[in-house]
Every structure is written in C-alpha cells, then in structure tokens.
C-alpha cells in the first residue's frame, strides 16, 4: 500500500526547478551587472550602509560589497552547473525519484542560502538607511528572496517523494508573489515618481504618444489598484488567470527598465527576473498539484 501522500515523479517538477534556477541565475547576473560588470557599475546598499551609516572605511566596505557580489556570481555559476548536471542525467534520474549527487546538492543549497542572505542583507541595509518607502522593502523584494528559498525546498523534496514539500513551495511562491505585487501596487497608487518615469520614458523611446503626466498618473493608480487586487486574489482564489496575468505583467515591468533607459539598463531587467519567474513557477506548481492529486486517487 503506497503512502497516501506519495507523489509520482512528474515532469513539471523538473520544469519548476529549471524555471527557478534560470530566474536565480538571471537575478545574480543582473546583480553582477549592476555592481561589477557594467561600465557604470555602482555599489550595493550594503556598501552604502557600511560606509555612510557605520563609518567603515571605503576600502573595507568596498571589499565586503565585492565579496557579496562575487559570492552571488559564483553561486549562480554553481546553480547553473547543478542544473546542467541534472539535465545531463538519464531521463529517469531527472525525475524526483533520486537525490542529486550529495556534493552537488550541498553546493547548490549553500549557494542558494548565500544568495538569499545577500538579498536580505541588502534589503535590511536599505531599510536601515531610511530611504523612500523603506517600510515596503521586504515586501517589494519578496520574490527575489522567495526564489532561492523555493528552490532549496524543491532540492530537499527531491528524493523524499513527499507532496508536502510542494505545499511549502506553493506557500512560499504564493506569499512572496502576493507581497511583491502588493508593495508595487501600493507605491503605484502613491504615484511613485520612478514608476511614472518608466511609463513616460518608455513612451518617449518606443511610442511617441506623449501623454500628459496627469493621464499617466491616472493609469498608474489604476495599475496600482489592479496589483493590489491581484495580490489579494492570488491568496483567496485559485483562478489561473491571475497567475497568467502576473507572469505577463511581471515580464513587462522587468523589461520596462530597458524600454525606458535603453539596453544599458539590462542589469535592472535581469535582477527583476523573479517578477515574472515566480508567477510562472506558480502556474507550474498548479499542474504539479493536479498530477499529485491524480496520483493519489489512482494508486499503483
């Protein structure tokens, strides 16, 4: 008699890992672009906090900042390598029935925790510096934190064949996606200047409609309320249309950095990959759940 919660290995589970891995790798390359690779590279909030607020000397603060960014980049490479390793396995081993090679598994898990910690530290540094809307920071970047956490859960789940891990992943992904949409929605309703600029500059570069700022602001408020409604809808309903809309809108908002500021803003777009990646993960999670339910109702 099989375990009632046993989950038959499913293809979407590996797809889900692929999506999350891709998102994390893109995010980390975005971070490296912002703070290391771009000709106009800058420093992270951690540097700003250490140097301006804590009185640590610039070389030391720069060193800590560089360690964090190189750490993210190396972690991304390790996660990418883990993904390629999984992809090269025979198709049966790519399913959830076997654990990964322990060394690769540990490297991936440690890398994911490093990335999550770095994003969290950046958010806390931003909050400590009291910048605009600092109180919404954690909610705003929740998807960036949620991605490594969700993938860690999936890596733990692999081999355990236990459906509750999918539930944990679902909670993480749902909650963080809702939080990010809620925070962005709130800022939009408050007519956050940079959001208005994204619309106006995108129009200037791509369309040339030259709308009045008042009209744009009315649109922005509507977008904001839509985001808030979607965040609430994601928690209280299971309607798939919400996730699809979030996926598309997340991609649009990430791309808007390039449409507004040009290709030079590619790191800004990459670092926001979780904006579309997490809703996509949610869509896949739904199909996994369906499969799991089917498996439970028709045991071997």
């Amino acid at each position: 008699m099989p375990d009632s919660t046993a989950c038959k290995p499913t293809f979407p589970a590996s797809q889900l890992r692929l999506v999350l891995r891709t998102v994390i790798v893109l995010q980390c390359f975005g971070v490296a672009g912002q703070f290391l690779l771009s000709p106009l590279e800058s420093e992270s909030q951690i540097f700003e906090f250490l140097f301006f607020e804590s009185g640590i000397t610039e070389p030391v603060a720069q060193f800590i900042d560089d360690v964090g960014i190189w750490g993210c980049l190396i972690s991304a490479v390790l996660i990418l390598a883990g993904g390629l390793y999984e992809f090269r396995q025979p198709s049966l081993d790519r399913t959830d029935s076997k654990r990964l090679n322990p060394t690769i598994w540990w490297l991936e898990v440690v890398s994911l925790q490093f990335i999550a910690c770095w994003f969290l530290a950046n958010a806390l540094a931003y909050m400590a510096r009291g910048e605009m809307y600092w109180e919404w920071t954690l909610a705003e970047i929740a998807v960036r934190l949620g991605t490594p956490i969700a993938l860690t859960c999936l890596l733990i789940q692999r081999g355990s064949n236990h459906v509750r891990w999918f539930d944990i992943v679902r909670y993480v992904v749902t909650l963080t996606t809702a939080m990010t949409f809620l925070a962005h929605g709130y800022k939009a309703t408050q007519l956050y200047g940079p959001f208005t600029d994204l619309i106006l500059l995108t129009d200037m570069n791509c369309f040339g409609f030259e709308p009045e700022q008042k009209s744009v602001e009315i649109g922005l408020v509507a977008i904001g309320w839509a985001d808030i409604a979607l965040a609430a809808g994601l928690i209280i309903t299971r309607w798939g249309g919400i996730k699809t809309y979030m996926f598309l809108w997340g991609a649009v908002t990430a791309l808007s950095r390039i449409t507004a500021f040009g290709l030079v803003a590619w790191p800004e777009t990459l670092v926001r990959s979780a904006n579309w990646g997490m809703p996509l993960a949610l869509i896949l999670l739904c199909s996994i759940k369906s499969n799991a339910v089917l498996t439970q109702t028709s045991p071997d």
């Binding site: 605009m132 200047g193 208005t196 600029d197 106006l200 500059l201 009045e212 700022q213 008042k214």
Partner: peptide, 8 residues
C-alpha cells in the same frame, strides 16, 4: 529628481 522627471 525625487518626483517624476519626465512629463510635467
């Protein structure tokens, strides 16, 4: 620079 710079 702390409000919308494009537009109005």
């Amino acid at each position: 620079t702390e409000i919308a710079t494009a537009g109005a």
